[in-house]
């Protein structure tokens, strides 16, 4: 990696920390948001411009095309949405971030398929890839469900004994992931089964939770997206992703607890209680 890019990542990382700090105080919050946005822009432009590989113009074109298309979509949605619909929009955006992490994981796993034994990624690398896929998938479907619920387009779904079902599914998911790492599998079938199972788990995880508790769940899923970003950061040895992701991960988790406290609820009762339909409405907005 070029030294200039490393310096840019360093600057971006500092802007994330300063930005988050400023976001925590009413007087400086707007400035804080701008500072982090600036740092993010620097990191993105730097990554594209300061690469040392020989890049074909087609790929450059595709990257810039993707950024222009996505940037316009994101900007238009953000500007058009009504004030009252903002929390659900945050959830939708968060789901996109999770999907991005899971796609990165899939591409990296595919690189491992059909290569010679000596070139295969180590078990440690495979576990980071698989964690990115699992966490990215859970946040993707989970955030979409949260978005749909706040939207009013989805009702609470409570299977009988849903807590038991969810926890068992989660354990199976973990065991399956460990199994893939241990046998050093490069089968794309196994990874797609894992992908689908994680997507289903994300759905089932959020589906029983009542609408009033959704902000807490969105904050939790947001924290998870940060962790997924950090994991992909480890994969590429990329500091800005690692630190940015972990900051969101830990800050998001603390924020989740703070939101629970503001609602007089425990995180466990939000996730496993699933009765937040009516009674918590009054206190949740605070």
């Amino acid at each position: 990696m070029s030294i200039y890019l490393s310096i840019i990542y360093l600057i971006a990382t500092v802007t994330f920390i300063v930005g988050l700090k400023n976001l925590g105080h009413p007087a400086t919050a707007k400035k804080g948001n701008l500072i982090s946005a600036l740092g993010m822009g620097l990191a993105i432009v730097g990554t594209i411009v300061l690469t040392e590989n020989e890049i074909s113009p087609i790929i450059y074109g595709l990257i810039i095309g993707a950024i222009v298309v996505g940037g316009i979509i994101g900007w238009v949605i953000a500007m058009k949405v009504e004030m009252t619909k903002m929390p659900e929009l945050v959830s939708l955006f968060n789901g996109f971030g999770g999907a991005s992490a899971l796609l990165i994981g899939l591409v990296e796993f595919n690189k491992n398929i059909g290569v010679a034994e000596a070139d295969k990624a180590s078990a440690a690398i495979i576990s980071t890839i698989i964690s990115a896929i699992i966490i990215g998938s859970i946040t993707f479907t989970g955030s979409l469900v949260a978005w749909a619920k706040l939207n009013g387009s989805m009702k609470d779904l409570r299977l009988p004994k849903y807590n038991l079902i969810n926890n068992i599914l989660f354990l199976i998911l973990l065991a399956f992931a460990v199994y893939i790492v241990l046998i050093g599998s490069d089968s794309s079938l196994l990874i797609y089964v894992l992908l689908v199972a994680s997507l289903v788990y994300g759905y089932l995880f959020v589906a029983p939770i009542g609408g009033a508790d959704m902000p807490v769940v969105i904050s939790l899923l947001n924290s998870l997206t940060g962790i997924a970003a950090a994991i992909t950061g480890i994969l590429y040895g990329n500091m800005v992703m690692l630190v940015g992701g972990i900051l969101v991960g830990s800050a998001g988790l603390i924020l989740t607890f703070a939101m629970c406290k503001a609602m007089n609820r425990s995180l466990a009762s939000v996730i496993f209680g699933a009765f937040g339909g009516a009674e918590a409405v009054g206190t949740s907005t605070g």
Binding site: F16, L23, G32, M40, I44, S100, A101, I104, N222, N238
Partner: peptide, 12 residues
């Protein structure tokens, strides 16, 4: 704001 920051995954 934290959600926007988690978009740092775009670098990857």
């Amino acid at each position: 704001g934290a959600n926007a920051l988690s978009g740092v995954v775009i670098v990857g």
